[in-house]
Simulated assay, not measured.
Amino acid sequence: MYFKGAVLFSLLASSFALPTTGDRKVKRDHLQVQDYSEFQVSSGVAGNALAEVNAKFPIDASDFANVAAEDIAILKAARETAEAAETDAGGFNDAIEAAGGKNTAAGKALQNGKIKNKVLKLQLQVLVAQIEAAQGKDTAAKLAAESKKLTNNINLDKAAAGQKSTAVDFQGTSQP
C-alpha cells in the first residue's frame, strides 16, 4: 500500500512540474554558443550555402516575435565572427592572397568558401533584422539592404554549385 501511494504521489507531483501551454507561451533558448569551426559553412562544395546556414542556426521563422534575447545575442556574435573571418588577419582575404589570388585552384576554392561565409554573415544579419522587426523595432531599411546583398551572394554560391569550397582556420565563437 505504501508503495502504491508513493508512486501515485510522484506521478501527481511530476505532472505539476510539467510546463503548461495554456495562454502563456514558454519560449526556450535553443541556440548554443559554438566555435567558428563548428558553425562555419565554407568547407565542402559550393551551391547550397543558405540551407547549410539555416541548418546551423535553426530559428523558427513563423515565430520571430518570440525569439529569446539570448538567441539574438548568439546570432549577432556569430555574424560578427563570420565578418571577422572574412576581413581580419588570417581570414579569407589573407588566405586568398596567400594562395596567389582567386584565379588559382586554391584561391578559387577559398573564394567559394568566402562567398559561402558571406551567405552565413548576411543570413544572420537578415535573421536579426527580421526578429527585431517582429519585436517592434524599425529595421526596414537595414533589412532591404542586407537582403539584397544576401540574394547576390546566394546567386554567386549557386553559380559555383559543385565546385570545391575551402574554409579558413579562423578562431572565434558565437559567444555574445
Rank of each mutant, 00 (worst) to 15 (best):
Q40E: 15
K56G: 03
L50A: 03
K114N: 14
K114I: 04
T139G: 08
D71V: 00
V45W: 01
G47H: 14
D157S: 05
N93G: 03
K102Y: 12
D138T: 02
K76I: 06
E38L: 11
A144W: 07
A167M: 06
F57C: 02
N54P: 00
V128Q: 04
P19C: 08
L156R: 15
K116M: 15
F3V: 15
I72A: 03
K56C: 03
E70C: 05
G101H: 02
F39P: 01
P176L: 01
K137E: 15
K164I: 09
F57R: 00
F57Y: 01
K142Q: 10
Y2D: 13
V128P: 00
V33A: 13
F3K: 14
V119E: 03
A145S: 10
T166A: 04
A6R: 06
I115L: 10
Y2E: 09
S165L: 08
E146H: 13
M1W: 05
K56F: 01
A68P: 06
Q135W: 11
N48A: 14
K137W: 15
Q171I: 01
L31G: 00
A84C: 08
L122K: 00
S37K: 15
N103C: 04
L127T: 10
V128A: 13
N66P: 03
D138I: 09
I96E: 05
V168C: 05
Y2L: 13
G172F: 01
A77W: 00
S10P: 06
F16I: 11
E83K: 02
K4A: 09
F92Q: 07
K4T: 02
T151Q: 15
A133K: 03
A89N: 03
L143I: 07
K116E: 12
L8I: 08
L75Y: 04
A77I: 04
K56I: 04
S147C: 10
F39H: 01
D169P: 10
Q40Y: 04
G47I: 07
G5S: 12
K108T: 10
Q171H: 02
F64Y: 11
G101Q: 05
S42G: 06
L18R: 12
A159M: 05
S10T: 11
I59D: 01
V26L: 12
K148M: 08
F92M: 10
G172Y: 01
Q111H: 14
Q175K: 13
L8D: 14
V126E: 06
